[in-house]
Nucleic acid binder design. Structure first.
Lengths: 132, 132
DNA sequence: GTCAACCTTCCACCTCACTGGAACCGTCAA
DNA sequence: TTGACGGTTCCAGTGAGGTGGAAGGTTGAC
């Protein structure tokens, strides 16, 4: 399959696929006689994994690490598990901090709702954002 | 107070404070006779707000917008409220996507747990990451 | 008076994940 | 055979949020 077909299967652009190849995330695909990149199912699987992993918050580098461990075939499960565990706690921390942020924003909003907009005319302070 | 003191109160570096000033996020502070930046409580409050807002997922630009609206003193409450509302839904979306990612990672981890590590010796595929 | 630890400016560089554009070649249907 | 729409390379830029380092001035304790 050609680059655009591969890209559209996964929901990225051909540019992005070439970029991934340039950073070593995708291997050199074979080429057709005319020099076009020619991808197989393995490329699709690899790219799909990168996309999934990215959706799960892993960086391209980390996806590459997992994929490389897989290709090297050593320590794979333990390393993958460790990476996964680290990301699970990262995600938990992110969710916690977002929820704290949410609460903060909500409190700010509540103040904005309660305050009479007419009170908001002091040219030097906004009641919502002001001293806290 | 001097730049490092301000910075350490908020948990950033002096470099970062100068950078914030350079992008207009913090106003020119006064200077001592020798040219050192001299900050007051207002700078601390402003920088703290930027840090809080950043923790809440706002960009530096957006923090600056709120702070500018506050300084300009017009339309403040409505604009702040709109910004806050937009960010609340952004945060909700982020939390939702992180929770989806979490579930995905957890599923991957569960596969890692169930599989016998001894099965993970095939040099060409990792059971955890492989075909799905 | 000396020394470390601070401060100043300025400019360049970094990471991440792309994106845009130029200049050129290949494919395919009308 | 012409034109649209792909593909190729390479280089440069984006934007967010900084960091590093050089070259110099200031402060304060011993």
């Amino acid at each position: 399959m050609r680059i655009s077909e591969l890209a559209s299967h996964v929901g990225v652009t051909a540019k992005t696929v070439r970029y991934y190849e340039s950073i070593g995330l995708l291997p050199d695909p074979g080429r057709t006689a005319s020099g076009y990149r020619d991808y197989g199912a393995d490329a699709l699987e690899r790219l799909t994994f990168v996309r999934d992993a990215q959706a799960a918050g892993l960086s391209l580098k980390e996806s590459g690490q997992i994929l490389d461990m897989k290709a090297a075939g050593h320590g794979t499960c333990e390393h993958t598990r460790a990476l996964l565990d680290r990301h699970l706690s990262d995600i938990d921390a992110q969710i916690a901090s977002l929820e704290a942020a949410r609460a903060e924003l909500l409190a700010l909003r509540a103040r904005a709702d309660i305050l009479n907009p007419a009170d908001c005319t002091d040219p030097h302070r906004c009641q919502v954002v002001g001293s806290h």
